[in-house]
Computed example of a mutant assay.
Amino acid sequence: MVPPWFTVEGGVTHLVGTRCTACRTVYFPPQQGFCRNPHCEGEAMEETRLSRRGTVWSYTNACYAPPEPFVAAQPYTPVTLAAVELADEGIIVLGQVAGLTVEQLEVGMELELTHGPLADGPLVWMWGAAS
Results as ranks from 00 to 15, higher is better:
131 S>E: 09
30 P>I: 02
41 E>M: 09
83 A>F: 02
28 F>T: 05
84 V>R: 00
19 R>A: 11
131 S>Q: 09
14 H>V: 03
114 T>V: 13
93 V>D: 00
32 Q>T: 07
29 P>S: 03
37 N>S: 12
20 C>Q: 06
59 Y>L: 10
129 A>V: 11
60 T>L: 05
75 P>Y: 02
11 G>S: 07
128 G>C: 13
37 N>L: 06
119 A>W: 12
32 Q>W: 08
9 E>V: 15
75 P>A: 10
66 P>A: 07
98 A>K: 09
93 V>T: 02
108 G>E: 09
30 P>A: 12
57 W>H: 10
94 L>Q: 06
47 E>G: 07
71 V>G: 01
107 V>A: 14
55 T>S: 06
122 P>L: 13
40 C>N: 07
103 E>A: 14
91 I>R: 01
48 T>I: 14
57 W>M: 01
41 E>L: 10
94 L>A: 04
58 S>F: 04
24 R>I: 04
43 E>G: 11
30 P>H: 03
83 A>E: 05
58 S>G: 07
34 F>C: 02
93 V>Y: 00
124 V>T: 15
49 R>E: 08
38 P>T: 13
13 T>V: 11
112 E>V: 04
109 M>Y: 06
102 V>M: 13
82 A>W: 01
120 D>W: 12
9 E>H: 11
44 A>S: 12
120 D>V: 15
88 D>L: 01
75 P>T: 04
52 R>K: 03
53 R>E: 03
49 R>F: 08
9 E>Q: 13
51 S>T: 03
120 D>Q: 15
126 M>Y: 08
54 G>Q: 00
5 W>F: 14
111 L>K: 06
46 E>P: 08
92 I>P: 01
65 A>C: 05
22 A>L: 14
69 P>Y: 03
63 C>R: 13
23 C>R: 09
94 L>I: 09
59 Y>G: 05
40 C>I: 06
40 C>W: 04
117 P>W: 13
3 P>I: 15
9 E>S: 14
13 T>Q: 03
60 T>A: 11
122 P>G: 15
99 G>T: 11
80 T>V: 13
4 P>Y: 10
5 W>P: 06
116 G>I: 15
7 T>A: 14
36 R>W: 02
22 A>W: 06
93 V>K: 00
128 G>V: 13
116 G>K: 15
104 Q>C: 12
126 M>N: 10
40 C>Y: 08
1 M>N: 13
81 L>Y: 07
15 L>P: 02
67 P>V: 02
110 E>H: 01
86 L>K: 01
100 L>H: 07
105 L>E: 05
123 L>Q: 15
53 R>N: 01
2 V>W: 14
128 G>Q: 11
67 P>M: 03
86 L>G: 00
54 G>W: 02
91 I>F: 05
52 R>F: 00
67 P>K: 02
35 C>R: 00
21 T>H: 09
20 C>Y: 07
71 V>W: 03
46 E>W: 04
74 Q>A: 08
18 T>E: 05
77 T>P: 02
48 T>G: 00
72 A>M: 06
49 R>W: 05
130 A>C: 10
100 L>S: 11
6 F>S: 10
106 E>S: 14
96 Q>P: 05
9 E>A: 14
